[in-house]
C-alpha cells in the first residue's frame, strides 16, 4: 500500500504526515508514507486544498488533517 501526503509545507500538512505515520507504525501495516511537495505532482491530482491524502492513487481526503479512524479504515482496504 502506498500513501501520499500532498502538501507544500503548510503547518496542517506536517501534522497530517505525522499522524498518518504514527497510525501506520502502530497498526504494523506495511504501507509506505510519502510526503509530496512538488507542485506539478500535487496539481496532477486535481485538488485545490492541502493537505490531501492519496491512497493507492486515489484521493481520499483533502483540506484537513484526517482523523485516526479514517486512516485506520484506509489501512484495512
Amino acid at each position: 500500500m502506498e500513501i501520499k501526503v500532498l502538501g507544500p509545507g503548510c503547518p496542517k500538512c506536517k501534522k497530517a504526515e505525522k499522524i498518518i505515520k504514527e497510525v501506520v507504525s502502530e497498526s504494523g501495516s506495511d504501507a509506505r508514507v510519502e510526503k509530496i511537495t512538488d507542485m506539478m505532482e500535487i496539481a496532477s491530482y486535481g485538488i485545490v486544498s492541502t493537505p490531501a491524502i492519496v491512497v493507492n492513487g486515489e484521493v481520499k481526503s483533502k483540506g484537513k488533517i484526517p482523523k485516526i479512524n479514517e486512516i485506520k479504515a484506509w489501512l484495512k482496504m
Binding site: G9, C10, M39, I42, V48, T50, G63
Partner: peptide, 14 residues
C-alpha cells in the same frame, strides 16, 4: 476556508 500556504495549489487548480 483558505490558507495562504496553499495559495499555489489553489491557483493551479483554479
Amino acid at each position: 476556508p483558505f490558507c495562504s500556504c496553499s495559495a499555489v495549489p489553489l491557483f493551479i487548480g483554479f
